[in-house]
Amino acid sequence: MSRSSHPRRFLGLRLERGLWLTLFLAPALVLMLVFTTLPAINALVYSLFKWQAFKRGAFAGLENFQRLFAYPFDQQFLRALSHNTLAFVVLLVVQTGLGLLLAYALWKHPPGLRFFRVTVFLPVILSLVIVGFLWQLFLNPLFGPLNKLLHGVGLHALALPWLGDPATALPALLLVNVWRWVGFPALVFLAGINAISEEYLEAAKLDGASEGQVFRHVILPLLAPSFTIIVLLTFIGSFEWFDLPYVMEGVNGTPAGATDTLALMFYRLAFGTVDAGISDVGLGAAVNTVLFFLVLLGAVLGALYLRRREVEG
C-alpha cells in the first residue's frame, strides 16, 4: 500500500514514523558526533597550540603552519602531496577504468559469471594487512616468486627490488591497491548497468547502434551517478592514503620518502616513530588540518561539478 494514497489518515503514523526514525538514527548520530566530528574539530584546534609530548601548551597561533611550510617540512609535504595526487590520477584511470571494463564484461553474462563476480570482489574483503604482507612476500627480491620467475626465464635485468627501488616502489603500491580495490568500482558499475532499463538498450539496438555505440552513448551517460560516487571515493581514498603504504613501506615512506603520503607524514609527526622520530603533535595536527581542508574542498567542488554533469547527461 503506497503512502500517498492515504496521506491524511496516515499523518499521525507518519509523525510517529519520523519519531521512530530519529530514535533509530540518534545512537549512530551521537556516536558519529562523539567519535568522528568532535575529534576532527579537536585536531584542528590542536594545530593552533604548542605541544610538549602530549601535553598541550600555550596558544601558538599559526606557528605550526609556518613550520610546516618552511624547510625541511615544506619539501616533505610537497613530495607527499605529489604522491597523493599521482595516486588519485592513476587510480582514477586504471582502477576505475578496469572496474568499468570488468563490470561490463560481467554484465554480458560470461560463462562462470558467479565465479568471476566473487573473484573480482574477493580481494576487497581480505584484510589489508594480509594483502600487504602477501604482496610483500610476492615482490620480495630474495624469496619472492616474481623475481624467481624472472630469473628463471633469464630476465635478470627485470628482477628489481620492487618495493625498495624509488622508481618502482610507488607504482608497485598502486598496483597492489588496484588489485585490492578494483572489485569495488566493478560492483558499483555492475549494479549501475543492471539498473538501466532494458527499453533504452533495445531502442538503441533497434535504431541500429553498434555495441560500442550503445556502451558509449547509452550506458556510460546513464552510469553518471555511479561515476560521481566512485570518483569522490577515489579522491578521498587517494588523499587519505595510509594503510597500504604503512603496511608495505613503513611510516617513513621508504625508500627515502619515495612512498610518503600526507597521512603517513601526519602520523609520523604526531605520534613519533620507534626508530627515528619524536612526536610533534602540533606539526602533525597542522598537516592534518591542511589535509582536511584539501579533501573537503576537493570533495565539495568535485561533487558539485559531477552532480551538474549528471543532470546535463
Binding site: 627480491p141 630474495l142 624469496f143 628482477a159 627490488p161 625498495g164
Partner: peptide, 15 residues
C-alpha cells in the same frame, strides 16, 4: 644481497 634495496630487516635476519 641481490636487490638489497628491497631487502628488509626480516629478510636480513632470515639470511
Amino acid at each position: 644481497p641481490q636487490g638489497f634495496m628491497g631487502v628488509g630487516y626480516d629478510d636480513m635476519r632470515t639470511l
